[in-house]
């Protein structure tokens, strides 16, 4: 194994990890505020990917340019999902919420399967095979663009939570549900907005991932698990944690693929998940769970 291979794997891992981080951000936002573990995460991501695919085929739109459209679409979907369905199980036990979301996930995957079929489909971009050479490093154009787009969207989201009035109100809700109600915030609406924003973030991630991966319905569970791993390692509910976890997992998988064996990289992630759950269940940047 030479330095060149390792360095290239490292860079590719960091870039891919940023996209993982953006996807996990959507899961983390929803959990951090609504305290719902979104078991339909990967399905939302796959829907985002298919939406970008359709826009590419119909309008020839580059998936990166379809980010705003797909994000808006998934925002509406997430908003409605929370305000019409998930709101009604908020008081139920963990396993009922899990089952509801699992059922919704099954329905969504099946919907995709009916419409698009089971075979992998991708976009053909004219820059797909281009790359930049920087010294020893060879950086794929698509991967670089994807990472830049992911960082931009994530930055937008972080700015929203820091500066926008609604974003700050949502954070107040997350910190203190009762307090938020007492000062007159419409918690139900803020929750719906949160689920919408989380979904929009997942949709954006879906568009970006389509640059790197061909889409098919059965990708979904794998992406759900990947996002869980990222978020738990970074810290459930911590936004920076999700990005950090994404990069860590991206690098760990890329390294495992070149050092050990590509097909074992996921096993490596799960092993990491087990270790973090045991030693630091709140994650690297998370607050202690109550």
């Amino acid at each position: 194994m030479d330095v060149e291979t390792l360095a290239n794997a490292l860079v590719a891992g960091i870039l891919t990890g940023m996209v993982y981080g953006l996807s996990a951000l959507g899961l983390s936002v929803i959990f951090g505020v609504i305290r719902i573990v979104n078991f339909a995460h990967g399905e939302l991501l796959v829907i985002g990917m298919f939406a970008a695919l359709v826009l590419f085929r119909w309008l020839g739109l580059d998936p990166l340019l379809s980010v705003p459209l797909v994000a808006a679409l998934l925002f509406v979907f997430g908003y409605l999902l929370q305000s019409l369905v998930i709101r009604r199980v908020a008081h139920l036990a963990d396993h009922m919420q899990f089952l509801l979301l699992a059922a919704i996930a099954i329905a969504m995957v099946s919907g995709c399967l009916i419409v698009f079929g089971p075979d992998p489909q991708g976009v053909q971009l004219d820059y797909a095979l281009d790359s930049f050479a920087v010294g020893l490093l060879v950086i794929d154009k698509t991967r670089l663009y994807a990472a830049i787009a992911a960082v931009l969207v994530a930055g937008l989201l972080l700015a929203f939570f820091k500066y926008a009035t609604v974003g700050r109100a949502i954070r107040a809700c997350a910190d203190n549900y009762l307090g938020a109600q007492v000062v007159g915030l419409n918690v139900g609406r803020l929750y719906a907005l949160t689920f919408g924003i989380g979904s929009a973030c997942i949709g954006a991630a879906g568009c970006i991932i389509l640059l790197l991966v061909d889409v098919h319905p059965y990708l979904a569970p794998g992406y759900t698990l990947l996002a869980f791993i990222v978020v738990i390692i970074g810290g459930m509910g911590s936004l920076f944690g999700a990005l950090l976890g994404g990069v860590l997992i991206g690098v760990a998988e890329a390294m495992a693929a070149v050092v050990i064996q590509p097909s074992l990289k996921t096993a490596f992630s799960f092993a990491l998940l087990i270790v973090v759950l045991l030693l630091r269940p709140q994650g690297l940047l998370g607050k202690a769970p109550h």
């Binding site: 369905v85 009604r88 199980v89 139920l92 009922m96 089952l99 509801l100 699992a102 059922a103 919704i104 996930a105 099954i106 329905a107 969504m108 995957v109 099946s110 919907g111 995709c112 399967l113 009916i114 319905p217």
Partner: peptide, 16 residues
């Protein structure tokens, strides 16, 4: 896809 689609909807309905 049709069977799991209805199935998912049916299970969600039961939960609700």
């Amino acid at each position: 896809g049709v069977k799991p689609l209805f199935w998912g909807i049916a299970v969600a309905a039961i939960v609700l």
